[in-house]
Design a protein around this nucleic acid. Structure first.
Lengths: 211, 211
DNA sequence: AATTGTGAAACACTTCACAGCC
DNA sequence: GGCTGTGAAGTGTTTCACAATT
């Protein structure tokens, strides 16, 4: 019903997950699906699923459920699965290397197209077919390869400096793997993944539960 | 004031971050710090910081702020930074490899002590001084190396099976990097990091913001 | 004078429960 | 009869605003 209402952050984070599970059901040849069935598979409360879907209008039919193909094409469109997104990777250390090799193969709509590392020669080199340039050429090559957003896997020292350069270039977003709390302009989207924080929080939970 | 009250999940996730920033201030030789100063550095509302700290009792002094050394030792104790935590890594593909090499160096209290991979020989091999065994020896070696929790970086196919074995062994927690939504017993703590989901959500935000 | 610790308000998110439609 | 879509209630989290304290 509300096409232009604000989608809650929590819902946004679940969208890719919905898409993945709907794909699975489609692959199994399922025609229709209820919020209860999705709930069992995803372990998300069925009311939450219905609420999430309802932000995008009436996707289902009362007394029936959801048409799998409908959902699939709706989410594909919504998550822009048709149009590939080009990603730049900044910092090819251990983690950066792993991400290049992983290269989000499962998602054919996102690709790391270019990488930067201070140890790379100016004229460039390659890992797994991905060109790697010296960071001096960031502005030039980011543009040239048509990157829309950057994955930041540099050292803490370089993180804010790189973020500043990215924001000057009007990069649209950063997926930040460094532990630094970056300052970026409003217009730039930022998502943080802090591996140590997650591990520490898990350890805290383990140590402070009764059992 | 409340020592045995329940700490909110949201607060728990911020604890490791607090510890890191307090360490920084201590290293700079700072003696006292206010919630406002921490707020500026961490970009967390000062009231949130005071509320978080208050769950652990009165750590500060009105009109003064917090004593840096006090905070530091309090958080070190609370996050068990004195006692090292031994971690097992299951699945040494691209990501697992990166995590072994990274090995959370910054946090000298957590160490990957043993790893498992189906391509490793039964008698074991090594990467960066970390022993790697065939998964057939998971139960045996998990125990032998005194692991308390596991990082799961296996394929989606193997994920739930490994989680089941870990739960049978009474592993205390799993840091799950696979996209699978694992089913584990109540007693086991689970933390999910799904790289594709984060990237997809970021792209969704970029594509659906007005600018 | 400065800054905490915390009731209370505000906001965000989840879940209940059921009217309405297929 | 089954299942959605959603008001309303419930739960969790953040922020305001200020009395209490050093």
């Amino acid at each position: 019903m509300n096409k232009e209402n604000k989608i809650p952050q929590a819902t946004t984070k679940r969208l890719p997950l919905y898409y993945r599970f709907i794909q699975n059901f489609a692959n199994e040849g399922k025609k229709r699906i209820s919020s209860k069935e999705l709930s069992d598979a995803m372990k998300i409360d069925p009311a939450t699923i219905r609420r999430d879907f309802s932000y995008f209008g009436a996707l289902g039919k009362k007394g029936y459920g959801y048409d799998v193909q409908n959902l699939l094409s709706f989410f594909r469109e919504t998550l822009d699965q048709d149009e590939a997104t080009n990603v730049a990777l900044i910092g090819v250390g251990n983690l950066g290397n792993a991400l290049i090799k992983y290269n989000f193969q499962k998602n054919h709509n996102t690709r790391i197209v270019v990488a930067f590392d201070s140890k790379a020669p100016y004229e460039g080199t390659e890992i797994s077919d991905i060109p790697i340039f010296h960071p001096d050429r960031l502005e030039e090559m980011y543009e040239e390869y048509g990157a829309e957003l950057a994955i930041l896997t540099v050292s803490s020292r370089s993180a804010q400096g790189m973020a500043d350069r990215l924001s000057k270039m009007n990069a649209k977003g950063i997926l930040n793997f460094t532990p630094v709390r970056l300052t970026v302009p409003e217009s730039m989207k930022l998502m943080n993944i802090d591996l140590s924080v997650e591990l520490q929080a898990l350890i805290y939970l383990i140590r402070n539960s009764e059992n």
